[in-house]
Write a protein that binds this DNA or RNA. Structure first.
Lengths: 141, 141
DNA sequence: TATGCTAATGCTAATCATTCTCATTTGTAA
DNA sequence: TTACAAATGAGAATGATTAGCATTAGCATA
């Protein structure tokens, strides 16, 4: 299933801005991008889409299930391609690097915690804030 | 250790706005309050402090370790008294009710997940979004 | 392939939470 | 009581995100 099909099946017209945003995520240079990031990257590559459009498209893609939105510490939200595999995130407080992880036990205990208290689990967000170490960590970007 | 001592040991002058904010949290009518909430409650009880002061005081209290700040889904942050016991939160998507829980296994697996990937865990945030059921849930407030 | 309609885009202005500025007021230590 | 730094209050400023609206571009049809 390619970009075009993705858009169609989400009931979205295949427009230039949408294709560009989508292929930016699929190019995979960086997995987690904010609206601002996307906007700048597109400008840098000569494609000029409006910032408002970027916001709109990102939200539509999230609704359509093509992207997932996250709120890391701080204010702005970031998006990543939805590849069907749920995972949580570890964020380096110094360099901002993000690593993904999945822990079946944690998932299961959450479900249990909710159930025991009479809640029907809908969703959850788990972010681990940490410091990564020498080779990988590029202090403050 | 009373309010005054708390403030002093945090290097904060004992001022009227600070005492009022602190006792609001200690009165315990509601555990999780946003800056706006605090502001309105103070106004309602005849104490008029500026909104800017509320924000300042809340942040100082957080730095001082008297309060803990959370970012539930949505935009505004909420604060709660820091009683030393770390816990996570389940938030009802319908009525907004918040319940706290602690799961040692989850805590431990998080530490493990970070360590295995070469991170030094500093902090984490875990929110479960769910729907609570009949008796307790007051749909949409 | 040309036409028309609706959805999409791109500005700019508006919102909302939060922070900053700065003149005025208030704790507090001498 | 005095003096001074720290704290407050009001409103302006900020930063991310959204809304409003005139213009443009997909896309289905003739």
């Amino acid at each position: 299933m390619n970009e075009l099909t993705h858009l169609k099946s989400a009931g979205l017209k295949s427009t230039l801005p949408r294709l560009k945003v989508l292929s930016l995520f699929e190019s995979g240079s960086e997995r987690h991008l904010s609206a601002e990031d996307v906007y700048k990257k597109l400008l840098a590559s000569g494609d000029d889409v409006g910032l408002a459009t970027v916001y709109r498209v990102l939200n539509q893609f999230e609704q359509a299930g093509l992207l997932v939105k996250h709120h890391f510490e701080g204010d702005k939200s970031v998006f990543e391609l939805n590849q069907g595999d749920h995972h949580d995130h570890i964020v380096c407080l110094q360099c901002g690097r993000v690593e993904e992880f999945y822990d079946a036990t944690i998932e299961q205990r959450q479900k249990k915690a909710a159930a025991e208290r009479g809640f029907e689990l809908h969703d959850h967000s788990l972010y681990i804030y940490a410091n990564c170490v020498k080779p990988k960590c590029q202090f403050r970007n």
